[in-house]
Design a protein around this nucleic acid. Structure first.
Lengths: 342, 342
DNA sequence: CTGAAAGCGCTTACAG
DNA sequence: CTGAAAGCGCTTACAG
């Protein structure tokens, strides 16, 4: 009757001459099974190579042992690190990971979220782009614990864990000002990206506070290397050149660096340069890049831990937004310039 | 009766005043439903925000719309790229992705494979380290289509897709010899890693063929940067220094480069250097690194496509091992040296 | 075109 | 400590 090769709990029960209920109890470690019976069941299961069918188990137990991760993309350092942190915790707590990328398409994101019903016990959601109000509420399966990662939601009732982009950006400006720079340009990230907006806000606030006589000097960018390169070319060509450039992320800082190299503008001698993220490349370029380290793996790990704790406790997740601090990494690109003057 | 917030197919049936069978048919696009009934069901489902329960659906339909990916790790460029290629195909074909890393622990790998029963429709498996004979057969859920990715199995009956490491390594040696190098050292990868062994084999064979009078010059390594650095220091200290170094992967080539830089050995003027993989860093270091590009995303995408085709066709996967060719990328680190002699 | 019913493979009160 | 039975939420022959 059973399809060849597929052995079910019934087969084990028949072989061990007990009921399926007893097999289930024995295999799940319940204590209301006689020890000799348990041994027999375990041995039989092993002999038949029985493996419980996950869908069946999920359906009746209402647990999937799986966490869903819905994110914009799987490409690149950031997501790789994030997944790594999530994975470490998942393994330690014996959870599976269902990943789903939506590549910036809100419809796909909504679909991905809805499709999680019956697949996962909880959800980690990244939505770095501005969301329609009610988007999550509309699409999240009811009753599924969620932790938002690096995702800003107005008036949200969701638990969230985010990088302290604002604090990191102000700290970077403080560092540059401390190194003697007075004209600090900023290369922005995408306008609809929350991380980018927070970093810009930090730049502006710190600048207004530390150098109240200076005008902010902002160049457009989109987090990609190419946009940093463009910004770099514009800076090189500008008449009143800044003495420091703070890029909203490392990739743009690198693009900017190429533009400087091309133009023979020396870093840090002619101009200081700083990024944000501390991608591995930052230590390898010449000069090495000053940046603000974001421990992405820790971000993922902490979010996962918080989510699993809620799942295990069958608890409501408290709403507060927790924050992950960043760390200033000073490298060659912002070394105090050997100036003629000042 | 139903837990608050969770709406099932029964609720939709009741609201639409049809049977659950009809709701199921309408929602799944079967054609044996009157058009007006279908409309009513669809509207009702939407109004109630009904979302099918994946586990229940899987249990009765025997389809999960999910592919499992079991790999040694989720860390780093290789897996990031691989997953990216897999994900692109998964999205296009509306499949979910269940990822599982086993971090080199065979027991965990076996567990991960077994736990896939009832969770996935097919499996992509990476096992770059030498496996016990029968390991996969022992642990793979019966009847689940599998494609092995970059995994060598003796006498395997599984479909597989692998990088042509051997061909890539011979091509690299040909390039170095063509550039005039006569004493070419090789930094090995881990002894139990199949990619590494194939690259070593390619190095040896090409050397024997092109420079039959030369002895191979092999240094130990483990694919990590640090081991490349150690090898580089040994090369610098050696009395009869090679004129080219071929590292079994880029990370070791970079480590080697640091050792050379430290010692004041210039690349490519004093010694040529080449790696394997074409990681992003290879374009960014100075000098830029000659390497053998492996299109990892394509590897993942092709494996996924092959697997899904088999799942869709309900087909047995044919066993042949397919191969992905590599591409020689010549950069500064192997430019023809400006020698005094020769 | 539609519904009642069986069944997917488990878990878990309920009785004993 | 154990088993019979209900139930998880679907899909799908089977009848009509």
């Amino acid at each position: 009757m059973a399809r060849s090769g597929t052995v079910t709990i019934k087969d084990v029960a028949r072989e061990a001459e007990v009921s399926v209920a007893t097999v289930s109890r024995a295999l799940n470690g319940h204590d209301n099974v006689a020890e000799n019976v348990r041994q027999l069941v375990l041995a039989t299961a092993q002999r038949l190579r029985y493996q419980p069918h996950a869908a069946a188990r999920s359906l009746s137990s209402r647990r999937t042992q799986t966490i869903g991760v819905v994110l914009p993309d799987l490409y690149g350092e950031f997501f790789s690190e994030l997944i790594r942190g999530i994975d470490a915790v998942a393994r330690a707590r014996r959870q599976h990971l269902l990943v789903s990328s939506y590549h910036g398409h809100p419809e796909e994101q909504g679909e991905a979220l809805r499709a999680m019903r019956g697949r996962v016990d909880g959800l980690l959601v990244l939505s770095p782009y501005a969301d329609q109000p009610g988007f999550l509420t509309d699409n999240l399966p009811a009753g599924l614990p969620v932790v938002l990662v690096n995702t800003q939601l107005p008036d949200s009732d969701y638990a969230a864990l985010s990088v302290d982009n604002y604090g990191g950006a102000t700290a970077m400006v403080e560092h540059l000002v401390g190194a003697g720079h007075r004209r600090i340009a900023f290369i922005c990230g995408p306008k609809d990206n929350f991380d980018a907006r927070e970093r810009l806000r930090g730049y502006r606030d710190a600048l207004a506070r530390l150098l109240p006589d200076t005008q902010p000097l902002e160049l457009p960018g989109d987090f990609d290397e190419a946009s940093g390169y463009e910004a770099g070319k514009r800076i090189v060509a500008s008449k009143h050149r800044p003495d420091a450039v703070f890029a909203a992320n490392d990739m743009m800082a690198l693009g900017c660096l190429y533009a400087f190299n091309e133009a023979g503008v020396r870093v840090p001698d002619d101009i200081a340069l700083a990024g944000f993220d501390d991608i591995p490349l930052a230590r390898f370029v010449h000069p090495t890049l000053t940046t603000m380290r974001v421990n992405i793996a820790e971000l993922g790990g902490r979010a996962m831990t918080r989510l699993l704790d809620a799942v295990d406790a069958n608890d409501e997740l408290a709403a507060p937004v927790q924050t992950l601090t960043t760390e200033l990494i000073v490298r060659q690109s912002s070394e105090r310039p050997r100036r003629g003057s000042g």
